[in-house]
Design a protein around this nucleic acid. Sequence first.
DNA 1: CTTAGCACTCTTTCCTTCTGAGTGCCAATA
DNA 2: TATTGGCACTCAGAAGGAAAGAGTGCTAAG
Lengths: 360, 360
Amino acid sequence: MELTDRQKQILRAIVDIYVSTAEPVGSKAIAALPDVKFSSATIRNEMAELTQMGLLEQPHTSAGRIPSPAGYRLYIDELMQDYRLSLDETRTLSEALELKSQEFDRMMSQVGKLVSKMTNLPAYTVATRQSEAVARHFDLIMTAPGSIILVLMLSGDVVKNKLLKLPVHVTEQELKLLAAVLNASLTDLTAEEIGGDLLEKISRSAGAAAPLVPLVMDFTLECLRQQHGDVHLTGQMRLLGQPEYRDAAEKAQEVFETLDEEMLTKLPAVLPKDGPVQFLVGPENVARELKDTSVVMMRFDIGDGMQGTIGVVGPTRMDYAKITAKLGYFAENLGRMFQKGGNATAQTPALPDGAKDTDS
Amino acid sequence: MELTDRQKQILRAIVDIYVSTAEPVGSKAIAALPDVKFSSATIRNEMAELTQMGLLEQPHTSAGRIPSPAGYRLYIDELMQDYRLSLDETRTLSEALELKSQEFDRMMSQVGKLVSKMTNLPAYTVATRQSEAVARHFDLIMTAPGSIILVLMLSGDVVKNKLLKLPVHVTEQELKLLAAVLNASLTDLTAEEIGGDLLEKISRSAGAAAPLVPLVMDFTLECLRQQHGDVHLTGQMRLLGQPEYRDAAEKAQEVFETLDEEMLTKLPAVLPKDGPVQFLVGPENVARELKDTSVVMMRFDIGDGMQGTIGVVGPTRMDYAKITAKLGYFAENLGRMFQKGGNATAQTPALPDGAKDTDS
DNA sequence: CTTAGCACTCTTTCCTTCTGAGTGCCAATA
DNA sequence: TATTGGCACTCAGAAGGAAAGAGTGCTAAG
């Protein structure tokens, strides 16, 4: 049951139109397209056929057609045309990408905001650890008597810190010693490799700073066990800009109750190992609450066992082509930034310049 | 034009009822209250009077009354009864406050989430710097050849870090030297006190690591100039749970377009120096878009020149008493945590146990 | 195989009517 | 004089239709 070229053309047209109007598409609307050479009656017949095949749906008898989830899937997999960013868009994007030099976490959060702004949809970012984490470096800094900051550097260039308040008094000298011991014995070990005997051993070598050791160990283990960085979800409210949520506040609320941080951290796992982009369309999604909601995710490489994911949440009717293009641009640039270096400022890559642009 | 006791009683009743029902309050509803000893006709007369004074409003001729912004203001300033958290609530709150030991920034974000969950409204947290920031400690850690992490500790126990990628090769030894130089000459200086000659001086002493110096300086200055930490705004969607926004997605969207991060960072500044809590009611707010929206903010002390703010965003009709109580509980505990120490785990303070509890 | 035409369906919109909550005012009452 | 019961009046919102319009499926002709 392969589709004929004409059927493909019609399906594509329906998705394209529906994506931008959010209204069911009638046969006349398609017949009116410049490169459609057949009549609305023919289109009606084909549409009946496509509906039969489960690629289209009819909200009610006398309405036009909308794509079914299967229809979207086919569109995404086979019919979608590469959306080319217009010159204007690339310019805006690369300006936006000139992230203020910042810490990693802040940058991820900023990227999320940018993506959300550019797509006018909710967006999120996560950093996921690919390989087992190990500690790379310990640092103990006294800020006031009894107040110590532990700075812990992990693989993946992740830096964590924690304020430790201490009942006993410790001198600067003793702190230095403890830091040295930690760096000597606790680095380059995975969480599993750190056993109980190590705690004792370190405590013995730590002298007066020994009471600090369990606190440090706890925090270290906690950090090592953390599989992913913070989830930065922003622009939730933009979902309300979409017609399907405009008067369905409840639905929008449900979406984010389901799509909480936990869920979002798990999503990157479904990304296929090879492809950098993944579409979760409607009911393919795990939860029923997300029936009309889709997620587009894209992965980029951070290096050193870490991997970033940017995602966009929107109605199932969303402009997959455009969003994929935009996400792709971000992912490419971010990947470049992390790989090649340069101090966290984006390059402007050569991109094919723009064609059609219908604003979402 | 002082209010009589009876007028006060009526105004208070109207606010109390309206807050929980979100419906205009009629004279009968008030007359039905157990401790109201006069008839609905009398109440009607008083209500007409209060309306005259601008404390009440009438959505339309044949509807009940709702408090005007001035009415809320008077309620908050004079009429509001202390809401006592019930035992159940304090238990839930103190369980919630057992924050996972974490870095400061994460904790602030977690607090925001908790507050939002407890109040069922959007909430935010910010840390604001009260005094001029200075650097306390520098640390340079090589993670790979050409890849260096700068860890910078500021006053207020704030830790920042940044990945520096370096074109030239630098040895561990040279990095140590540079760190020592930085710690000797760049600490305890405010942004203003760091001048151009310092850059040169440090570069000269830095030897082979000299190319790093401007990068470090830039980042340092950037951090020192930062007046506040990240804003953590969460639970925006909960605003939709409120009847006034239920079918007014647009309005909800506008609220957060206006109340963006920039705005939120500025809000704590309006907090009076003495009181720890501040109410922004409807039109008192800066922007017209926030007409029906109010913000309750509470400050808590972090120590070392830093100050935290937690805030809740909601409809002007919100349960100020209850929200103040809950925020107060958080603020108190957080203050305690930061002041006294203990490793970032909340104590359960003795609180008067509960009375009335109408769920919002 | 395609197309024009037409009857039919069903949503959406616009009116109209109706209901009920709540008011303001007046006259009676304590 | 302050309070109260009573009553006419107002107005938003619900409920019920009627009309409009978009789009379909089917049939018969090209």
